[in-house]
Design a protein around this nucleic acid. Structure first.
Lengths: 216, 216
DNA sequence: ATTTCAATAATTTGATCAAAAGTTATCTGA
DNA sequence: TCAGATAACTTTTGATCAAATTATTGAAAT
């Protein structure tokens, strides 16, 4: 019998788990991450935890300080500026490419995800908002079939995840606006250019929102 | 007495070593990389080699295939297009920022590195060209004080390193043109905008050159 | 000669251990 | 009470080992 599920290695699982922790605000900028503590928290050995941490530091999601301590990097205005520059190049390009390959079935899925975003905002569920927002964007980006851009976008989201959590915690979800409607409408209209612009606008406003927390 | 050199861990050394191997064309697209073989080649244990490989796969410099084999990714026109898009955003921005903080001493160093590029082209030393070219660009980018952009640029160079080596090997260094003079002149003139444009032009022509090897 | 199947070899993966390095707590002496 | 030194604890790091997985080799059958 064919084995349908290819068992993924432990370090891959841990990597995905910690990645989610960072993306969805379970960690805070400046928070130290120990290889031991991580292994213990997840309930696994230290070897796969090490490898997961290496991958995350390579992606810039964690930083390794000189005393070989590892922690979640904090955000600065300067870093935010760099991230915005690249996001505004990469993600609209992904959205444009996605729009060209998008099927009605995909747009419906995006609308479903967007409804989750709205719901989370209304209820004030920060974690739910972060997850739904991420899934909306990366379902769209996944349609683009552009792995390199996709991965760059992911590393940038890993960098803003913790800060986004902080600012949401401070100001709540009331100030959040959902700009995804414009994107799905452009997709229905089969208009890649408009989709691209909608995502660019969404990014600009998201980054403005995060800017409220960054130290100088 | 103060310890001036902080001993860097083994996995860091190996990482840098393999990184150089990729950047400077000691590996070929499609070439398999075994964790064992690497440890044996460098003459070290398997644990630090593993961690170095994880970092490189996280950066996209190596790809992990489904049969948990790891190899150097090959280049395609589509990938090249994605890389060019991001390079043309990130590196000119770095050059512009660098131009604003550049001291005469730095420009002299850049001219020294550029002379090495010229020399390598003249002599037909491919490895020497790759190294000198890299050092010219990243000495400049290092002046910008923009770590995030800097690291993104590095990952992109890691992706084109093997292909650049292949195309140089096929066509030799005769077809290479050195566009750095325009950049150093703009730096002397204290003209960030011109510096930015010079680097953008250099990137475009470099990518055109690599395009000759990529499969469809 | 080619294909199939089993056996062998090589490799990855995760656990464990010892040594090195760093951090925290305690104790001492003023 | 407070500063400095020592001790105890924690963490990282690299080596080693066993199990699991994958590739490769070789033999047998058609």
């Amino acid at each position: 019998m064919n084995q349908l599920v290819t068992k993924k290695p432990e370090h891959e699982t841990i990597y995905l788990r910690v990645r989610d922790m960072i993306l969805f605000g379970e960690v805070v900028p400046g928070q130290p991450v120990t290889i031991h503590g991580l292994a213990q928290a997840i309930g696994t050995g230290v070897t796969p935890a090490r490898e997961a941490i290496r991958r995350l530091t390579a992606a810039g999601a964690l930083v390794s300080r000189e005393n070989r301590r590892i922690e979640v990097p904090d955000m600065t205005a300067h870093r935010l500026e760099q991230i915005e520059l690249v996001r505004l190049t990469v993600e609209p390009a992904l959205a444009e490419a996605a729009a060209k390959r998008c099927k009605p079935h995909d747009i419906k899925e995006l609308e479903r995800l967007d409804a989750l975003v709205d719901e989370a905002i209304k209820v004030g569920d920060i974690r739910g908002y972060l997850e739904a927002n991420y899934h909306f964007h990366f379902y769209l980006y996944g349609l683009a079939d552009a792995q390199i851009l996709h991965r760059i976008a992911e590393t940038l989201w890993l960098r803003i995840g913790p800060s986004l959590r902080v600012v949401c915690g401070r100001y709540g979800t009331a100030n959040l606006v959902d700009h995804h409607r414009k994107a799905t409408e452009a997709l229905w209209a089969n208009d890649p250019q408009k989709t691209k612009e909608a995502i660019a606008q969404d990014i600009r406003q998201g980054m403005d929102f995060v800017r409220q927390t960054s130290a100088d």
